[in-house]
Computed example of a mutant assay.
Amino acid sequence: MMAKSDKEILANSMYEDDPNGNSAPTSIDQEQGQLAASEAATADPTNIAAAISPRWGPQNKGAQELASLYSPGKRAQEVVCVYTCIGLMIINLALIMSHMRWERISVTFFSALCGILTADFASGLVHWAADTWGSVDLAVIGKNFLRPFREHHLDPTSITRHDFIETNGDNFMVGIPILGYLAHYFYIKSPGEIQQNFGWIAYVFLCSIFVAMTNQIHKWSHTYWGLPRWVLLLQSCHIILPRKHHRIHHVAPHETYFCITTGWLNWPLELLRFWSSFEFIIERLTGLKPRDDDLKWAKKLT
């Protein structure tokens, strides 16, 4: 895959510089809208409104339908997951600090680095799988877990209008069994065993934290004003996912740069053609086309 220039990225990605509404069309949007309207008028004069429907943003009909599928049951699951995970974070942090020794600082730092890389890869794997395969119509996982990915491509800054619970519920859910096991590990192991395996403990804990915070970091990458200075500093240093870096993913058909914790692994994975190779193999073995459901929603203008 050829690297995209800044001009190509800006021309083909969602317009996000009006107050996170995606309401102002780019020049390309206007040109394509006019062309679509002209073609629609020729084929069917009654279909002009559909032809010029917004490509992206909260006014897109597909985005509105997907947003309406967010259910009270899903909200309840997210509330339980967020509060449970935060409780486990506090418990494990207290246990780790009580066993922390100065000689373990270097091990903790190295574990943090490994945890970041693991979380970044995990974010890419989940993001790729949910973007590329499956359908909103699938039982249980469709409306509950794939729906937000489809909505996000049609209305990318809808995430900035979600509160902390809706933004982070699913990622916090992933951390619950890991952090629960870690708390149990402290309970069943002796202090000597804990010190011997402190590097592994720090890795698991920090990886869980980065995984849990991935969607909050993702939300910040779509927020163009009002961010705290420390978030902007972390973005500018590329310690967390920068806004300009993530915009590459939002060039249709959303086939690249899936890692959204730090984005550090995006370039090397693209160099290895990691995701496209897996897509080729899966398509050859199953006949399933990557991003078929995503494309279906992208075409849903009415």
Rank of each mutant, 00 (worst) to 15 (best):
L182T: 07
L182A: 11
A183P: 04
A183C: 02
H184G: 14
Y185M: 13
F186E: 10
F186C: 09
Y187P: 03
Y187I: 10
Y187L: 10
Y187R: 14
Y187D: 01
I188P: 05
I188N: 03
I188G: 03
I188H: 13
K189D: 07
S190L: 06
G192I: 10
G192C: 05
E193Y: 06
I194C: 12
I194W: 13
Q195V: 11
Q195T: 12
Q196I: 11
Q196S: 15
F198I: 15
F198Y: 07
G199R: 00
G199H: 02
I201Q: 08
A202D: 08
A202V: 13
V204I: 14
V204A: 12
F205L: 15
F205A: 00
F205M: 11
L206P: 01
C207N: 06
C207A: 15
S208K: 06
S208L: 02
I209T: 07
I209Q: 10
I209G: 03
F210M: 11
F210Y: 13
F210W: 00
V211P: 00
V211D: 03
M213E: 00
T214E: 00
T214V: 02
N215E: 00
Q216T: 02
Q216R: 09
I217A: 04
H218D: 03
H218M: 08
W220H: 03
W220F: 09
W220S: 02
S221V: 11
S221M: 07
S221T: 07
H222R: 10
H222E: 12
H222C: 05
H222I: 00
T223C: 05
Y224R: 13
W225V: 09
G226S: 10
L227I: 08
L227D: 10
L227E: 12
P228R: 13
R229E: 10
R229Y: 10
R229N: 15
W230K: 04
W230R: 04
L232S: 15
L232W: 01
L232A: 01
L232I: 14
L233S: 02
L234G: 03
Q235K: 04
S236L: 01
S236W: 02
S236K: 09
C237T: 09
C237V: 09
H238C: 06
H238A: 12
I239P: 02
I240Q: 05
I240V: 11
L241N: 01
L241E: 03
L241A: 02
L241I: 09
P242S: 13
R243N: 05
R243D: 14
R243H: 04
K244L: 02
H246I: 11
H246R: 06
H246N: 10
I248D: 04
H249S: 06
H249I: 02
H250F: 12
H250D: 06
V251A: 12
A252I: 12
A252F: 08
P253A: 14
P253N: 14
H254W: 02
H254G: 01
H254N: 09
E255G: 06
T256A: 01
T256L: 09
T256S: 14
Y257K: 03
Y257D: 15
F258L: 07
C259V: 06
C259N: 04
C259E: 06
I260N: 06
I260L: 14
T261A: 15
T261D: 11
T261C: 15
T262R: 03
T262P: 01
G263M: 13
W264F: 14
L265Y: 08
L265F: 00
N266I: 05
P268Y: 10
P268M: 04
E270K: 00
E270V: 09
L271I: 11
L271Q: 15
L272Y: 08
R273S: 08
F274K: 11
F274G: 00
